[in-house]
Write a protein that binds this DNA or RNA. Sequence first.
DNA 1: AATCAATTTCGATCATTTTCAATCATTCGG
DNA 2: CCGAATGATTGAAAATGATCGAAATTGATT
Lengths: 267, 267
Amino acid sequence: MHEKERHRIIISAVQDRPVVTVGDLCTLTGVSEATIRRDISTLHMKQKVRRVRGGAEAITPPQFAGLAGRPFVVNETMNIAAKQAIARAAVEMCSEGDSIIINGGTTTFQMVHPLANRRMQVFTNSFPIAEHLLKHSKNTIMLSGGAIYREQNIILSPFDNDVTRNFYAKRMFMGAQGLGPIGLMEADPLLIQAEQKLIGQADELVVLVDSSKFAQRSSLVLCQLDRITTVITDEGIPDKAAAMIEAAGVNLIVAQSGSVQENEVAS
Amino acid sequence: MHEKERHRIIISAVQDRPVVTVGDLCTLTGVSEATIRRDISTLHMKQKVRRVRGGAEAITPPQFAGLAGRPFVVNETMNIAAKQAIARAAVEMCSEGDSIIINGGTTTFQMVHPLANRRMQVFTNSFPIAEHLLKHSKNTIMLSGGAIYREQNIILSPFDNDVTRNFYAKRMFMGAQGLGPIGLMEADPLLIQAEQKLIGQADELVVLVDSSKFAQRSSLVLCQLDRITTVITDEGIPDKAAAMIEAAGVNLIVAQSGSVQENEVAS
DNA sequence: AATCAATTTCGATCATTTTCAATCATTCGG
DNA sequence: CCGAATGATTGAAAATGATCGAAATTGATT
């Protein structure tokens, strides 16, 4: 077995498991411990693996624990105020007891706080949203089934999910990557897939986008403008975009991020 | 067991209970108390856990206000050692990369800690299990869809769930309320429903019951003995029960909760 | 409430085992 | 034959487990 081959094996092995021992790699490659140690040493120099006592581990810090499943990675501190105002306006559209669908995303996640006092039926494909509502509210939570995608923080199934198909709601709330004359745009194909499974399960489609999204362009178009019932955004929306939305016959709600709205509870 | 692995297990363990004792961690990892203390000490330095007398606790204050969605409230501090030993034996049945199904329950929940070091495919109907594994392991998590029942902490759908139906696994692990000559018994109809949806999706059915369960009787029979492949229990099992199980042609594994471990081989 | 005894837990130390790094001999390919 | 890579050996370093006295907790009694 050649050196390069062993290196590939070692790099591949540390991906699969948190740590690989020298002994493991010996049986895996069939060479002596001394050689494995030399390999680990050179790979450590090349920053390909991290050398630890007893073997090697992946270079990625073992802090993944906070990364996945957490609400959202250091939650885009930008626009957080606008997102919260938008989310609050979205929740205010709903009455007690309503059934709604919330598609996963950083903006829609902000809905969990105003939802804390409600008692509604919430269907979502977002693990963090379900988790938060489960722990901090009395809403009924329904979850779509499937694999949990750590990066996007959504649950998605390659199969048709009858739970999804049988759940009908008054409104579906979703975010997006961009919103333009072409329609609603998304960047991640996985998100597209998730969203398209849910669209059509609700009477109204409500889109939550902060005003920066009107400048964004993305290659993937999710649906056309006239499929949208309502757009909720913040005060920064350009006049042109507002005109475009209203021209398409879509309701436009501009959430006041600054101060007074109705009464509010901080959760 | 490697140092890093132990650290992961410790970090994982402090998540679901206010404090973990040194003894718990010993049985969980199979090393001596001295080593556990040293580990806690280093993790304390790294701000990963807080060191307290008797063991360790999570660095985050016990702010968990939500009553539901919590792993399992104060549920049975009793038998916790036996349950952990049983769960550990269950995980040791599996190899890296295996696909398994874990049915929700207090005993099966203990499988999350030994699973922290694994990279397997885990399908579950338990929100707490999914949450823990998502945050503290690199396993692939698949979740069944449906409503989240707060009391039982499981996800259940009134509809047929194609995700469930399409997921096939080598083994399914489940707990139970009781195990007698009549078969496997459960107390809650909701759990029966959830379990019956999953049985049949795996080649082997492994039942995790601590020895107190052999005395329990319940009105609802889930399945007959011969449907079970393996029973894992603790040393307290009555001879009569052991005879009954083996007479039915079911494998019986008695997990040693206290001390002795066999040698262990990764991979 | 205060004190004392009994139990548990901790920290330090030391012996044992495991792992490492350096050295040297051997093999392999040119 | 040379040089690079590998394997083996050995003393050093590190990790682990066990032991024991000290400190803390518990709870029982006065």
